[in-house]
Amino acid sequence: MSALDTASAPVGRSDPGIGRPLARFSGFWKWLGVLPFFLFCALFLLAPIVTLTDGAFRAADGGYTLDNILALSSPNIVASYSLSIRLSLVSAALGTVTGLLLAYAIILGGLPAWVRPVFLTFSGVASNFAGVPLAFAFIATLGRLGLVTIVLREVFGFNLYATGFNLFSFWGLALTYLYFQMPLMLLVITPAMDGIRREWREAAESLGATRRQYWTMVALPLITPSVLGCFLLLFANAFGTLATVYALTGSNYSVVPIVLFQQIRGNVLYNPNLGYALALGMVAIMVVSNVLYMILRMRAERWHK
């Protein structure tokens, strides 16, 4: 490319007519590297959004209708959105807090150097461990006849289920989500934690600040934008989860992805256009949370460029 640029520059100056095609050619090559990204966005982001937006406003006969959008306000669908949002918020909040504490312990807690790569490697695996295998793993450990449940009962005399705990409940699902949310939080917050400079803490301490004052006045405000971003990522991660909840509870917990799944898989509830509308609702929720995030981030980052 540089050779082309070098060759075209003097020619272009003396004879613009000859230089221009070469310049255009080099301009094309400059964009070639990002072409796969735009292609990917077009095929897997823009095209699906256009398709589901179009589908959400069509009836089974192909004509335009608002019925699917109106059906989103029906009690069972509102309940499923409510459940999905609550479950996602709770699991994202739990994942954010526990992941943040874990990251603090590993990165700033003064643990031996080998701990960090071990945890990060494990987190890389655990954050992708979801769906049926994860549901089965939790049933095998914390189900009524799970290994941990039995060990707690037989060895320690502690009946987990007598406390009201139920793996197949809202909080059971939240706990299961935590398995991939916490490591994901650890992975994505690590660069921000690494960015906290030791000199800031020492400067604060030299000015008389306690560790708590340093964290509340300096460190936490600095990482707040990153934490907000991670929380949103965890929320989106939980909001789109289908296989884990389906494998764990069947259709008992009708989160939005399960209701959507029921509309497109071809049983008695078959209504793909309602499925499109449900998906459009999910996109709308993500857009709202992204806008909210950007507003919060702008406020939290007013000290930044």
């Binding site: 400079r197 000199e199 800031w200 020492e202 400067a203 604060a204 301490e205 030299s206 000015l207 008389g208 600040a209 306690t210 006045m217 300096v218 405000p221 600095l222 000290w303 930044h304």
Partner: peptide, 28 residues
């Protein structure tokens, strides 16, 4: 360190990025 009444200046300045000049000087 926070009870020694010392003032420290670092090579890398170590100003708190989330505070203005006023906020930094007022911190202590």
């Amino acid at each position: 360190a926070n009870q020694r009444q010392i003032g420290m200046v670092f090579q890398s300045y170590a100003l708190f990025p989330n505070m203005s000049v006023f906020g930094n000087v007022a911190f202590g």
